[in-house]
Amino acid sequence: MQEFLNNIIPNLMGKLPTFYQSIMDTLIMAGWSGAISFVLGLVLGLAIIVTKPGGILQNNVLFQVLDKIINFFRSIPFIILLTGVMPLSRLIMGTAIGVEGAIVPLVFGTVPFFSRQIESALAEIDHGLIEAALSMGSSPLEIIFRVYLKESIAGIARGTTITAISLLGLTAMAGVVGAGGLGDFAIRYGHDRNMTDVTYVTIIVLVLTVSAIQLLGNYVAKKNTH
């Protein structure tokens, strides 16, 4: 087996520790920024939905502000965002480089997209349900937790899946700020040193990860669709 692998992916076998480290870096970056983005995006998506005209906590000023901020950050290409938020990164994380330095830009790159996903998942809920809840004397907080979130678990799972996959893509660019990770690994060895086997194995690992995320997302969505 060992010999077989040495034969078909010789370059990668020579870089195994770096390869494992890259996988870990990617997981750490994606995990942290994903978790933070999930919470922030959920809050923002909810805020957008409830402050919308006709929403349960209608507030046009807040709605417009949030809407514009989300659009603003969504229109900045990630590669520019990476360097653009460096000062903020330094302020929050104490550094603008490495895995820690990548988390702030990844969050900025993910939250606007994810909050739109949440917004559209929540918007799928029939307004009649909200009316029914209001007619039963539910408070706004109750409606948020017991109607909006509870009813849209499947939609949120789908939005999370799409976002997680796109976040994985973003981490590949984080090498620009020296954060390492699989993307950086593939570029540095696979491309720059022409070790094509490194590129292919990286691709396989990414495809498997994406498939796993997709399967998990589909499972959660299906479990919560009645």
Partner: peptide, 28 residues
């Protein structure tokens, strides 16, 4: 909100919560 609990309402399109069972809907 307290007053609304004393006023029930039903709708043309029922407006039941799809993610809850019959029991869950009535318990809501």
């Amino acid at each position: 909100r307290a007053a609304r609990k004393r006023i029930g309402m039903i709708f043309q399109h029922f407006n039941l919560m799809r993610s809850r069972t019959v029991f869950g809907n009535v318990a809501y």
